[in-house]
Structure formats: C-alpha cells, structure tokens
Nucleic acid binder design. Structure first.
Length: 309
DNA sequence: AAGACGAAAGTGGTTGA
DNA sequence: TCAACAACTTTCGTCTT
C-alpha cells in the first residue's frame, strides 16, 4: 500500500508510484512527476537539545551517520575507574582523557552543526534517506581528515550532498544545490571535487537519462515524449555523442527533439530554463543529435502534418 | 513579434609540458 | 606553473515562422 492515496492532477489516475530511491512520486499512467520533493515521513532520530541527549534516549538509535558519532560514542574511562590506577599511569590516563575530550568535542561540535545544516538542505530538496546518509558519511570522513579546514562548513556539506546525489543516481543540479544551500555554484563544485578526490570517492559521470523524468514533468510533457527522449539518449550514447558533454545539456536536447516529434513543442528557452543550461547549448546538442541520428525525417513529418492542420 | 539560429568573445576548469 | 584546449555561457545580429 502506498503511504497515501492521491489522484494524479494530470490524468486523474490513482496509480501513483513513490520511488523512494529517487525521492519522486510519479504517475504510472501518464508519467507525470506529481511530487518530486516528497515529505519524509520517516522517524526523526536526531535530537537537538544539548543536554546529554544521547543518554536520555529511550531507545537506541539505529547505527547511522546522520548521528554525529554514529550513535556509538566512546569515552576514555570514567572518573571512578581512574582511582584504581596509580602515579604515572594515572597521569597518562588523565592526559589521554583530556586529548580525547578536546579532539572529540571539536569534531563533534562541528559535526553537530554541519549535520543539522545537511539535514536542512536535504529536506529542502526532499532527498531520499539513503542519499542523506551517504552525504553524512562523506562529511564525517571529510571532517576526520581535516578537509574542512579553510573551507566553509556549509560548502563542504553542499559538496557532500552533491556527491551523494551523484552516487545514488539521484541527480540534482549544482544550481539546485546552490539555491538551497546558499553557496555559490563554483564553490560547491570546487569542494565537491576536492573532497571526492581526497577521499578517493569515484563518481561515474551522471547519466543524462536520470534527468529526463524531472525535466519532462516540469515541462508537462507526455510519457511517450519522455520515453522517446530516453530512446534518443541511448542511441546517442552508442554513437558516443554524450561523452565529455554536460549531461543536462544532452538531456535537455533529447527532450526538446522528442517533444518536437510528438507535436508537443516547447521553446528552446523553456527547456533551457528547466534544465539549467542555455539555449545555445541545447542548439548545439540538438544539431549533433540531428546529424548523427537521422531524425530529420521525423521532424519533417511533423512539420508537414502541422501544415495540414 | 517571438522564436530559432549562428558567430564571436569571455569564463572556469582540465591537461600536459 | 603556465599555456593550450574543450565545454559552456553571454551577447548580439540575422533569418524564419
């Protein structure tokens, strides 16, 4: 059973499908993405009160990276244990404790703040839990390696989120991340590259097809147009038109062409806006697509048809 | 008049010497 | 570290619908 029952505003069908992995709800009948930014109904595990919340929990939290110490804190000895030691050992123990305390509080304080920010941005973009977890993991690693030094915490959070999105094939554009985090696009890109390189995270170039449903829905295009554009993309990939190019531009061009073919014309500007690229880029990709994939005949057909009407 | 097209110059990033 | 380079953008003039 779906979490809620709702009708598709486009076709009235109730065959809505919640793709938790991508954080999108789409209609299986017409392909409309009804709500791409789902509210997360999941249990809220984090606690924001500052007074020893970890100890006050009634139940144990699941092991999770969105918890600043993964829910499994370690303390070096408790006071009462210390009195069993003597002299040097005891001093050593105190020193250790002090260091442990200093390091961990510094890191923890940072993580606490950062994860709150991460959570905020993530819920603004309505990212799925898995992505949020991944981002938190990446951020935690980054802090432990001191990669945040010299960079703003927020930008690293944004970078981690972006990386996590990419890894989970839940593409959000840099623009979207930038808008929701208030960090400049360049900066996010920079820290994203830095962090992934330093942590040795390999990220596959994102697949243009992943962007199609979202763009198509923003443009209110039919399901046929959508699947046609995915066909085009697959074809384009075989001819190696896609490598080296920005995935959003290609996705946008494919969508533009297939909309044209299906008589659901959108202007280049409209498509460009939702895809976050310029008309020029669409034109360039579009031209390449036409050259390589002999789609001219399809387009001519549509044009003739339109003359008749 | 709006949209499509293309040329030219500029930007930020990668790569290779 | 610097220069060449590719992709993409911005801007602007021209053609098409």
């Amino acid at each position: 059973m779906p979490e809620y029952v709702k009708k598709c505003p486009e076709c009235g069908g109730i065959n809505l499908f919640w793709d938790k992995e991508k954080g999108e709800v789409h209609c299986k009948d017409c392909g409309l993405v009804v709500e791409e930014k789902m509210v997360d109904f999941g249990q809220e595990w984090r606690e924001f009160d500052d007074n020893g919340s970890a100890k006050k929990r009634r139940t144990g939290a699941p092991m999770t990276y969105t918890q600043y110490d993964q829910g499994l804190g370690t303390e070096v000895g408790v006071k009462s244990d210390l009195y069993q030691l003597k002299g040097k050992d005891r001093n050593k123990f105190f020193r250790l404790r002090k260091w442990q305390y200093r390091i961990s509080t510094a890191i923890e304080r940072n993580l606490k703040l950062a994860l709150a920010e991460l959570k905020r941005v993530s819920s603004y973009l309505k990212l799925p839990k898995t992505v949020e977890e991944e981002a938190a993991r990446i951020y935690t690693l980054a802090v432990q390696r001191g990669l945040v030094r010299g960079r703003s915490m927020e930008s690293v959070v944004a970078g981690a989120l972006y990386a996590a999105c990419r890894r989970h094939d839940v593409p959000r554009t840099l623009d979207e991340l930038s808008e929701s985090s208030g960090i400049e696009k360049k900066e996010i890109g920079r820290t994203y590259r830095f962090v992934t390189r330093e942590l040795g995270i390999t990220i596959l170039p994102s697949n243009p097809a992943d962007y199609i449903p979202r763009f198509a829905s923003a443009l209110k295009l039919s399901a046929e147009t959508q699947s046609k554009s995915i066909d085009i993309l697959e074809h384009a990939q075989k001819v190696e038109l896609t490598s080296g190019r920005g995935p959003t531009g290609i996705a946008a061009a494919a969508l533009y062409v297939s909309a044209l073919i299906h008589g659901e014309k959108r202007t280049q500007r409209e498509v460009a806006d939702v895809a976050g690229v310029t008309e020029v880029t669409i034109r360039n990709r579009y031209k390449e697509l036409l050259e390589e994939l002999d789609l001219e005949k399809d387009i001519r057909k549509v044009k003739k048809k339109r003359k008749k009407d």
